[in-house]
Design a protein around this nucleic acid. Structure first.
Lengths: 141, 141
DNA sequence: TCAATTTTGCAAATCATTTGCAAAATACTG
DNA sequence: CAGTATTTTGCAAATGATTTGCAAAATTGA
């Protein structure tokens, strides 16, 4: 494991919540953007980190990286302060594997995250853009 | 509703499965890419269509659009033939709203989709890239 | 230690998506 | 219905995340 890769992995592990390549690069001094991306690909290939793509109006569409391996978790993204909040371990994996199997599908992965307002932003009186509908397969931010 | 917007909406509604802006543009003659994107933004703003961002190795990272409104569904994406298969109506909305509420979060949206091998590609003997682990918050394609 | 392989930095290229701007289409007013 | 105000469209250029070519630097192996 080269120094660059080790550094990237440490940043992701120490953060505790999802980070974009841009954010990771900003936490690392003296490493090129391309090196960060290549390190992230390497680490994901090795199963050491996981990732998902999320779009928010502040940061645009970016891939976010989290610690991988055994512990797969899901995340909530606040559309106001743009912080991630841990929703706990995966609760949809078994369910979707079963639904898929009934349709003859071999489900090997899934992407899931929720969006809305975190407690702080609700207290600050912020209102989400689109309140009532719980849009499935849709991000409202 | 202008002609361009109506045409885009019809394409999405008639397709029945998610389409990217690129694919929609290809199904429409004589409309600029920018017009297609603006029409999609308009239709999503009006709640007539929904969307989600998915990355696959063949098409890269793209936003896919589906019919919106009352009927929110989830999709399976085959990592081999890159077709979408309907998994049925949303089954995670209530669950995640409840989990979020316990943490003080106001969940207003979520993104969910599964990936793997469809029945046809399994029959054709294709093997998914990463077989066993059901990676949460992760796409394996 | 020297050659072979891999990784890095830099700059340029990609690719989906967005935006400025003037022309075209549509809506509104009298 | 004409005339003006508003919105939408097409085209071209800009954006921004991510990728890639290539030569230098670092690492590995003999």
């Amino acid at each position: 494991m080269t120094k660059a890769r080790k550094t990237v992995l440490e940043v992701v592990e120490q953060e505790g919540s999802p980070l974009s390549a841009r954010q990771i690069g900003a936490r690392i001094a003296g490493h090129d953007t391309a090196t960060v991306y290549r390190a992230l690909h390497y680490l994901e290939e090795k199963g050491l980190i996981d990732s998902f793509v999320l779009h928010c109006d502040r940061h645009g569409t970016e891939r976010y990286y989290t610690t991988g391996g055994a512990c797969h978790r899901h995340w909530f993204h606040c559309v106001e302060c743009h912080r991630f909040i841990d929703l706990g371990e995966c609760v949809v994996g078994d369910m979707i594997e079963k639904i898929g199997r009934q349709k003859g599908l071999a489900v090997t992965g899934h992407t899931f995250f929720a969006t809305g307002l975190c407690a702080d932003c609700q207290a600050a009186g912020k209102m989400p853009g689109r309140l009532p509908s719980d849009t499935c397969s849709t991000q409202t931010d």
